[in-house]
Each structure stands twice: as C-alpha cells, then as structure tokens.
C-alpha cells in the first residue's frame, strides 16, 4: 500500500512537471526567424509574402520562400524580395533574378539573387558566372 502511494505521488509530480514543460510550448515566436525553417534572417536576402488575410510571412532566402510558395500559392497576395545592392524591398514582378556561383544562405545553398535593376544583375551575372533565372514566384 505504501509502495502504491509512493508511485502515485511520483506520478503526480511527473504530471506537474509535464504540464509545466508542456505549457512552455506557448512561447512567443521569434520575430526575425524564417517562417520555413526557423533560422535567423539576414535582411539582405529576405523574401516577404503578404497573404490574402493581410498577414505576413518572411523567409531567409529565395529557396525557403519558393518551397513555401508551392504550399501557399493560393493564399499569397503579394511577394516582396530585397534588392541585393540597395537593400530595399521591391515587388517580385519588378526584380531581376540571377542564379550564380555565389551562395547567399549556406544551410540551403541558395544561389538565386534578386536585383532591383538590370545593370546590377548583369554585372553580377558576368562576374560570378551566372545565368538569368525566371521569377520563381510566377
């Protein structure tokens, strides 16, 4: 009987620990992390989606944004990329995309770059053995 009581006490302690640790799940999301794989975002290579409901999704690279785009296609209202030269946000329809030897985000080996004007994109293309890339979000 005493042994049973000991087990029940232990079980209750476990339940409390479990509840406490489980509730930690209600943590606040880290603001500057990629909505695809959770890594910290380098603003120069970020991609932003505005969804139909007005909410925003941000990604660390074009690779992560593209992988999410295939799942979120119907919900995406607007896609913004960052011009690698000026660091300004521009619409994907105005951007020039180049795939080159330069890797922007190491963990997913993103080689696709976004530029705000054609001259910058051409310069990068010639310098780093690149080629033109179609807009991945169309």
């Amino acid at each position: 009987m005493a042994s049973n009581k000991r087990w029940i006490t232990l079980f209750i302690i476990f339940v409390i620990i479990s509840l406490a640790s489980g509730c930690k799940g209600e943590r606040k999301p880290i603001e500057e992390r990629c909505d695809y794989d959770g890594v910290k975002i380098e603003p120069l290579y970020a991609v932003y989606f505005t969804l139909q409901d007005g909410s925003e999704k941000k990604f660390c690279s074009i690779v992560c944004a593209f992988m999410s785009f295939s799942e979120l296609k119907k919900k995406v209202k607007e896609v913004m990329v960052v011009d690698e030269i000026s660091g300004k946000k521009i619409s994907d329809s105005q951007a020039f995309f180049v795939e080159s030897e330069v890797v922007t985000v190491l963990h997913n080996k993103n080689r696709i770059h976004a530029f705000g004007n054609r001259e910058d994109a051409e310069k990068h293309l010639k310098r780093f053995n690149g080629r033109w890339n179609e807009n991945p979000f169309r």
Binding site: W7, F14, V15, I17, S18, L19, G22, G25, E26
Partner: peptide, 22 residues
Amino acid sequence: YWFAFFFLSASLLILIIHWLAD
C-alpha cells in the same frame, strides 16, 4: 511495467499539452 506506464503516460501528456497549446 510501472515505469513503462509512467513514462509513456507522461510523454503522451506533454504531447497533448503541446498539441492543444500550439
């Protein structure tokens, strides 16, 4: 088997709490 019951129940409980909270 008490240990098994104990550990399996506790792991399930954490999962359920996460599932409900998230």
